[in-house]
């Protein structure tokens, strides 16, 4: 039986999962809206929401990593199997890609010249003047890290389903309320 994780981390895990899928679905849709101009403002709400959720997600992921590092959740286990080593790599990659996605998205937005008001309450500082080249660079990084994230998330879910079907206790730590 796997050791149970703190309830707060379990909740953050499920909020992260939900946010990631919403961000994927909504971003695919919002990019099919007309390009922004003085009259075409369809993208305003979806883009602000996308950025707000992304920034909040970054804070959650950083908290989860801090809990993992300082909480000593991971028992040091010798002789890990290949699947266990793969799971460790998948977890590390997921954290890395979540952070990379969020930061590259924020930087792309910052260099696009569009302001970000966190949850319509706090104006976040602009990093620089509008810069098309940096906007395109960070936009490309955002795109490819997010595709990679989707791939590792798919692997993560497949592994969870495998362990649930085997009923070997591995996923028990993520199922508590």
């Amino acid at each position: 039986m796997a050791k149970q994780l703190p309830r707060s981390k379990v909740i953050m895990h499920w909020i992260t999962a939900t946010s990631v899928f919403f961000l994927f679905v909504s971003s695919w849709w919002m990019l099919s809206l007309p390009l922004p101009s003085d009259v075409f403002t369809y993208r305003q709400l979806p883009f602000q929401l996308h950025k707000n959720i992304g920034i909040t997600l970054l804070a959650i992921v950083v908290t989860m990593i801090a809990m993992r590092v300082y909480g000593r959740e991971q028992s040091i286990q010798a002789n890990k199997t290949r699947l266990e080593k793969l799971a460790d790599v998948d977890h590390l990659l997921t954290y890395f890609l979540l952070i990379a996605c969020c930061i590259s998205g924020y930087l792309s937005s910052a260099y696009s010249g569009w302001e970000t008001t966190l949850w319509w309450l706090v104006d976040l500082p602009g990093w620089s003047e509008e810069n098309d080249d940096l906007n395109i660079l960070f936009s490309d990084i955002h795109l490819w890290t997010c595709w990679a994230l989707l791939a590792v998330v798919a692997l993560h879910i497949s592994a969870a389903l495998y362990h649930a079907f085997k009923d070997d206790g591995v996923i028990d730590k993520m199922f508590r309320l």
């Binding site: 919403f22 679905v25 389903l161 079907f165």
Partner: peptide
């Protein structure tokens, strides 16, 4: 296997929430 049922319900719940939210 209730664990399997529970996980699949959670998985589709997350995907559905994304769809309805969008």
């Amino acid at each position: 296997n209730s664990k399997w049922i529970g996980l699949v319900v959670v998985l589709f719940g997350i995907l559905l929430l994304a769809q309805h939210g969008n």
